[in-house]
Design a protein around this nucleic acid. Structure first.
Length: 293
DNA sequence: TGTCAGGTCCTCA
DNA sequence: TGAGGACCTGAC
């Protein structure tokens, strides 16, 4: 991978397996927004980045070589060989083959732990546009201002200490509704127990899931999303309404509880259940598979 | 007006 | 274990 420095950014020529639309619209992140010129602007680690693809080259703007190498290469999982991964998945069965072809430029982002915890708590019984709006309101109200970029002010995601000290009434102004107490309780637990979220990376999958589910508002689905998108646990398998639909449409003849479906998926797609889930989710949601007419 | 959206929690059998 | 209801809000 050759990093070419350009004015206010860097360019990577012939970057394969990288489609901004697939990456940012597969439901794994809530802070990346499509611009009029088809580029995406997002925030991570108190940095604002603009990404777009032109021919086979990918441009990362408002950054520099140092930040790209130290922050963004890791964030975009650029060290992983997606060609091999996709080939392994495509060989498992015909539905995965179709899903992988459909979302060929998808990558799993390595995102912030606390941000994923709160964002996916908000995702419960909610729609993606609403989740994004709510997350944005929280950042504007409680996050640190980063910078003005292309006419918009960007804010970092707040820290646990910021949301642990506010009242439910106050947070509700961000339209967090019945999830308000979950957000505050989870933030309080982190502060009161002096938890270092980074240290949870040492835990194995089973203990990590137990630890996450001890937080208010984090159940089986949300914990697995956090494991996949913040801890990069390749075999986590979040079962949401779309994965349920695609599993029932393609893989199951019998009724199955969500819990059993999770175990079933993890065994079926081992050791890449998380990746399989993401390709299947994107395929199912974009095509409306299994959705009631 | 009713239904549904990337669920979780609580209660009860 | 797991089934069933409640839960905010916004969009269609």
């Amino acid at each position: 991978m050759k990093i070419i420095e350009i004015e206010n950014g860097i360019k990577i020529e012939n970057l394969e397996d990288f489609e901004p639309k697939h990456i940012f619209e597969c439901g794994q992140c809530f802070r990346w927004n499509k611009q009029k010129d088809e580029s995406y602007i997002g925030v991570y680690n108190s940095k604002v980045l603009k990404v777009y693809k032109k021919d086979n080259d990918v441009y990362f703007m408002n950054t520099n070589k140092d930040d790209f190498e130290n922050i963004w290469a890791e964030y975009f999982d650029l060290d992983t060989d997606y060609k091999k991964l996709k080939s392994d998945l495509a060989n498992m069965d015909e539905y995965l083959k179709k899903s992988v072809e459909f979302g060929h430029g998808l990558r799993i982002l390595k995102q912030d732990i606390y941000e994923m915890m709160i964002s996916f708590i908000i995702s419960a019984r909610n729609s993606i546009p609403n989740i994004k709006k709510t997350v944005e309101r929280i950042c504007e109200k409680y996050g640190q201002k980063i910078e003005e970029f292309e006419g918009k002010t960007y804010y970092a995601f707040p820290k646990p200490k910021d949301l642990a000290v506010i009242t439910e009434e106050e947070l509700k102004e961000c339209k967090t509704s019945f999830r308000t107490k979950y957000i505050i309780n989870t933030s309080k637990k982190i502060i009161e127990e002096s938890l270092k979220l980074e240290e949870l990376k040492e835990l194995n999958d089973i203990n990590l899931e137990d630890k996450l589910r001890a937080f208010d508002g984090i159940g089986p689905k949300v914990s697995n999303c956090i494991m996949l998108f913040a801890f990069y646990r390749k075999n986590a398998f979040p079962v949401d309404v779309w994965v349920k639909r695609v599993m029932e449409e393609f893989y199951l003849d019998e009724d199955m509880s969500l819990n059993k479906m999770k175990d079933y998926g993890m065994k079926l797609f081992n050791p890449y259940a998380g990746f399989a889930q993401q390709y299947l989710f994107y395929y199912a949601r974009e095509l409306g598979i299994g959705k009631k007419k």
